[in-house]
Write a protein that binds this DNA or RNA. Structure first.
Lengths: 348, 348
DNA sequence: TGGTGATTTGGTAGCGCTACCATTTTTTTC
DNA sequence: GAAAAAAATGGTAGCGCTACCAAATCACCA
């Protein structure tokens, strides 16, 4: 029975998991706890000899720091909440992937939050995650409830708003000009000689970035002298199935249409796959354009013309901006246009 | 200059963000801090009158609990780390989605970790995330480094291992019998009359669940009296592109093949899309089967025969098992076979 | 009306760590 | 070689919250 070195009534006040603590390491190494703390956090302030003794004690005891305690005592917990509208949309996943691949090697962990496009939920999620004393934070979009915005500003730590670009971000901003991107595809369709062009999207009631792209689409058509404005939409989240549905709906309702501008590649792919099935020729019978640059697009027949956005890279860059600020410096720029690219392929 | 009510040299020892604390609420409501804590955590132990006064103070001051401090003082932090091999594989994303949609409404936050299929990284990630005093945890697979396994056992809190099914889990287990699933598709192909069947997969060196499916495939073929065993593999992660590559490689190397059993639907979809493009008829020229049940499969021409696994549901169930245990009870079962289903469609 | 038990409130002592300052030791300088 | 500066180590006091126990209040019944 290993009573305990100190021999006392070690009843361990709380429910302690009996984890090895910094104190244990200190005892083992014969130094003060604070010195162990230093050896781990700012090794340059500890003499080489002690450092080694402490490192040995750490591995001998299998010590793992309690980040919660550290977070309470100092500041951040090396947690970075990432708040996105949805986890069922590939776009956000790819951004998160980029973020995660960049933050994890730097010793930060990603805390996931999703809002289902509901700004009210976003606001309450902000409250919750701020409770974890995060070191920084990444949020989607530039529009938030006033309460959330106020709290984030008061919070005062590094924050990157992604996906969208605007004048008035809280701290840092990286994204694309959605209006521009929408206009880009519309212009392309017009240049290809199409006149009767529809825009097809989903969930545009809550996804205002999709609305921005639609807005760009309309402006571009107008600029080209096309006044008619055809819109098909659906409330379900984007999927191949909804793309297929919107495609059939459009064919049925407006057989005269020459080109379809889909709000994203999922929808566009669903349309092309259905076209393949029912023998509609793309682009001869009808042209199809998308947005995002999903890899699937390149494997379709015909390959999908799309406006690609470097989603993974956006995540990486957002994380880098955050890291730059976390590590005391400041990012090269606090407002980054990650850009987009029109990929003209055979579907238009 | 608002010096401070107490009038003192309020230098605020640390770097405090000046956040409203429980103490502030207590002062505002005219009660002891501990009472506020109770009003928030176990309101049934506080009289209605006080409860209301405290609630008012909370919203008047905009108090948000510091979960870090709470986590340190009590036990868990209401954080649930979810450790997966990769965030670029749709399967894991869908599982995470299910987990997140179930845990978030219950007041738990998901902490994301990815291992890149490296058990060494997994072990160190386990150390890191345990540092956050999580309330519970979800991990992928049943095989871990001995050190990680030891720590998790010693940790003693709810843990669900997902994706795979086995006799010896650490705490709770939900998943599918990969060997069985692999055998299921192979049997189907044999029953359809195909004899010369290949298995095509990626990253099988590190993805042992894919190896298990291959193993099942082999056993089924053997059981059917087919001794030849053709395997094509690639080291890159699964993608449409790699599926296409493997498909062409197989056609080229073994023109006599009758059926291709792909390790997942991403690969199989890449193959069908390429077949469409180069005019290979599926299944007349060659049959194609997959694994997972990605929605894309249903939109291909021909539609993809696959073994579906309810990935989102697996996430939901894993989270429910965890919640059951976290809330003091115990899950209906600590080992759940989420099952799979052979979806026979036109590609075989 | 006093005594018993149930309910409600409060006090105290940490959870494990680090900021801040004090002390000791080493190095540098004239 | 002594004084001054720099570097290395330690002590103490919390970070904001909750577990545990003690005290006070209330309800109830003989």
């Amino acid at each position: 029975m290993s009573t305990n070195k100190t021999g006392g009534r070690e009843r361990r006040r709380h429910h302690g998991d009996n984890r090895v603590t910094l104190k244990d390491v200190a005892r083992e190494a014969g130094v003060a706890p604070i010195t162990v703390s230093r050896a781990l956090n700012t090794p340059e302030n500890v003499s080489a000899g002690l450092r080694e003794r402490i490192d040995n004690a750490v591995s001998a005891l299998g010590y793992v720091p309690n980040l919660i305690a550290g977070g309470l005592a100092s500041a951040g917990t090396r947690v970075i909440p990432v708040v996105v509208p949805s986890l069922s949309i590939l776009t956000y996943i790819e951004v998160i992937h980029g973020i995660q691949q960049t933050l994890e090697p730097a010793g930060y962990q990603v805390l996931l939050g999703s809002t289902d496009f509901d700004l009210e939920r976003e606001a309450s999620l902000v409250d919750t995650v701020l409770g974890y004393s995060p070191s920084g934070m990444i949020m989607t979009g530039l529009r938030h409830r006033e309460s959330a915005e106020r709290r984030l500003k008061a919070w005062g730590r590094p924050l990157v708003e992604i996906m969208e670009l605007g004048e008035t971000c809280i701290d840092m901003n990286i994204g694309v000009e959605n209006t521009e991107a929408g206009a880009c595809m519309a212009r392309h369709l017009v240049e290809q000689g199409y006149q009767r062009i529809a825009f097809l999207g989903t969930g545009m009631a809550h996804d205002y970035r999709a609305r921005l792209r639609y807005e760009g689409h309309r402006q571009a058509l107008k600029a080209a002298g096309i006044e008619s404005d055809v819109l098909f939409q659906d409330d379900q989240p984007s999927s191949y199935e909804v793309g297929r549905k919107l495609f059939l709906e459009a064919l049925d309702a407006r057989p005269d249409l020459q080109a379809l501008h889909f709000a994203n590649d999922n929808l566009a792919a669903g349309a092309i796959l259905e076209a393949n099935r029912i023998g509609v020729r793309v682009p001869q019978d009808i042209a199809i354009g998308g947005y995002l640059g999903l890899s699937l697009g390149e494997h379709l027949t015909p390959r999908l013309t799309t406006v690609t956005v470097p989603r993974y890279e956006m995540g990486v860059e957002a994380a880098k901006m955050l890291l730059a600020k976390l590590e005391g410096g400041s990012p090269a720029s606090s407002r980054v246009d990650i850009g987009y690219e029109l990929k003209v392929r055979e579907s238009t």
